[in-house]
Nucleic acid binder design. Structure first.
Lengths: 241, 241
DNA sequence: ATCTAATGGACTGAAATCAGTCCTTTGCAT
DNA sequence: ATGCAAAGGACTGATTTCAGTCCATTAGAT
């Protein structure tokens, strides 16, 4: 057996991966908030039935209901009973408490670096994939949804489009990474004021990216996505100066 | 409020993220195995004390001990009591049951695609970082450990080197992604026979990559890492033909 | 007007998990 | 030799979480 130097093994424990970050109730709450940020459950849409959602989250219905009750009383959800009832996602109550400050600098650079690795690559691979008619159509629907969004529901729909693009990349690991990057970005963006003019610009960029993907032009898709991300990067960085 | 089309929202639930994948005991077991695959706890080294490890994993000591007992009786760990005692990682019992077959094709491509997005980028960013003397030294130590490894402990030490490189990239999200990619790769490689000649070649490539990083040559680091990965890719793909 | 089925609401007892405490073993320092 | 401190081993009672069951409400179907 070869020698194995300890190195900074205590520090390497960073890559352990916690089994539980808190109690199940809190983690469930977190996953639901994340799903809403990512547009998995866009504003105005119904959540899956509790029994279904509980199973998807790997959690008992009782615990899920505790979390849902919390979100409901915080104004994120509206519940209606009876057949064809359900739990509806309200517009994201965009509270700008806890604004970004200089202590967030490292986190911002972390997220931006990760994003610009993972998203352009996903766009490039998506362009390389041969898409079904349904997939193309879904892309366009998602894009239109972003276009007709207002300030209260823009971010989740935007996130959904980006994740949807990554999901075409034939690598589920990459798609998952993009979802994580997007979520982290949304968390940061939720802490700065919403700027109106950016939307029109973003929309044009989305259109260019989608065109490149639909035409199978991977190089362009990658480049355009990179530029698209640069906008957000400048926005976030600029907010600290 | 703008219209929000359902799309394939049921399918989009893929990005929910389970709170729990099984019971805590099983998840703990999985995290420990993963840590061993990644060289977080290399063969021959002691695990942290139970009380410490339990806290790092976010799990009670009782549950951790259940998992450790399982790993011990499976031959992964050896326990010694008393002061200066501890739990030592045994050589990975490399069982080649459950070899790769054609049904793993999609998974393989998934992992390889993700890897070749995330690892070269991490190497490039690592080259851009200004490293401390300790960091440089740790890199060299990790490299030497890989060199003097034998078939029974090669993979974890190799993985550790790769994760260590990614950890220099100034993006903890990227480092985490590389760890995930590496672990997925190791899981696949553990299912094919170990080939001796590859080691020497890999070692040379590692050396070139480290040189590029230490000299701040990001472009070369990226390119060399890409080539390094191509070797594994060919190996895995070739095993299916 | 009634029935039906799908939904959220509520409760219970069982099982898993935890936090805390104390015991046992061991090698080094004295 | 002896004591100490750090490690694993073992137990207990409290808490969380679960699976299962039944209730209440509702809109459409009949």
């Amino acid at each position: 057996m070869a020698e194995t130097k300890p190195l900074d093994s205590r520090d390497g424990m960073r890559f352990l991966g916690q089994v539980r970050r808190g109690n199940v109730f809190e983690e469930t709450l977190g996953q639901l908030l994340r799903a809403m940020r990512l547009g998995v459950f866009p504003p105005g849409e119904k959540l899956p039935a509790e029994r279904e959602l509980a199973e998807a989250l790997g959690v008992s219905r009782a615990t899920l209901r505790d979390s849902l009750a919390e979100l409901q009383s915080a104004g994120y959800l509206q519940v209606q009973r009876g057949r064809y009832g359900g739990t509806v996602v309200a517009a994201h109550p965009n509270t700008h408490e806890n604004p970004l400050d200089d202590s967030d600098r490292a986190r911002i650079e972390d997220v931006l670096a990760f994003r610009s690795v993972v998203e352009p690559a996903a766009a490039e691979l998506a362009a390389g994939a041969s898409l079904t008619a349904t997939q193309r159509n879904n892309l366009m629907l998602a894009h239109e949804a972003v276009n007709s969004a207002d300030a209260t529901n823009y971010r989740p729909l935007d996130a959904r489009l980006h994740v949807m693009i990554a999901d075409l990349s034939a690598s589920s690991m990459l798609a998952k990474a993009v979802a994580e990057a997007r979520d982290a970005t949304s968390e940061l963006l939720d802490r700065i004021p919403f700027l109106k003019p950016n939307i029109a610009h973003s929309s044009r960029q989305h259109e260019d990216i989608l065109n490149a993907i639909l035409h199978g032009d991977g190089a362009s898709a990658k480049k355009l996505m990179q530029e698209h991300l640069d906008g957000t990067a400048t926005l976030l960085r600029g907010f600290l100066d």
